[in-house]
């Protein structure tokens, strides 16, 4: 008798000739499922090391700018992490899922360049799920928010302005650079420093 049930054991495929494959599809998909279910940072690191350089080169081809290409990597890989829970294997391979996220981020970035619009239409043009939409929840934990605000106040003024502009006033890094009269690169580096500092402070208290 032929069983109509799907085999629950897919592991037999794994581990064979892994190094020879053109695209290690099963490994990538397994890693993404692991990120989705367990927020597994090791699995994410594997996805990152596989996709990030390819996304960067795609971005350079698309925008002709290394800085914009790096932003594409950042946007795409951030969504891969944050939205991992929304991934289901029956929706297709991990490569397809990451590709659609990259394509959407790239589409929105091009629109920003061409028409100076930040309407992020890609999610409506290529919806992840037909009858639903992604709900981006910001901090719901008020205690943590308050604590965070205190910490932000204690940052050096230059770093504080950047954090407040980007996270509380929803300015883009470009707008902020113009507003403060400093290069975008400086905005980025100040932001990175500030976030590092905040992480250390908040992290210490959580431990």
């Amino acid at each position: 008798m032929v069983s109509l049930e799907q085999s629950s054991d897919c592991r037999t495929i794994k581990g064979k000739n892994v190094g020879m494959q053109e695209t290690p599809s099963e490994q990538l998909t397994a890693a993404l499922v692991n990120v989705a279910n367990n927020a597994d940072k090791k699995a994410y690191a594997y996805l990152f090391s596989y996709f990030a350089p390819k996304i960067k080169r795609f971005g350079i081809k698309q925008f002709g700018s290394e800085a914009m290409a790096m932003e594409l990597v950042q946007d795409t890989m951030t969504s891969v992490w944050r939205k991992a829970k929304l991934y289901h294997q029956d929706k297709g391979a991990a490569t397809t899922w990451v590709y659609t996220i990259m394509r959407n981020a790239s589409f929105d970035a091009l629109r920003k360049v061409k028409s100076n619009k930040e309407d992020n239409l890609s999610e409506e043009i290529w919806p992840l799920f037909h009858d639903e939409q992604v709900c981006e929840k910001s901090f719901k934990d008020h205690l943590q928010t308050n604590q965070l605000k205190e910490k932000i106040k204690s940052l050096p003024a230059a770093q504080r302005d950047v954090v407040v502009g980007v996270y509380f006033e929803d300015m883009t890094q470009e707008q902020l650079a113009q507003h403060l009269g400093i290069p975008v690169g400086t905005v980025k580096s100040r932001l990175r420093l500030a976030l590092k500092k905040l992480k250390v402070e908040l992290g210490e208290q959580h431990d």
Partner: peptide, 28 residues
């Protein structure tokens, strides 16, 4: 890939994995 790129990627990855995975779906 250059060392500089590797470092930039590493920093980026560390930043990203500090973020909450908080997306959820609502009916449209």
């Amino acid at each position: 890939s250059s060392t500089e790129e590797d470092l930039a990627f590493e920093a980026m990855m560390n930043d990203i994995t500090q973020l909450d995975m908080s997306s959820e779906m609502v009916p449209r």
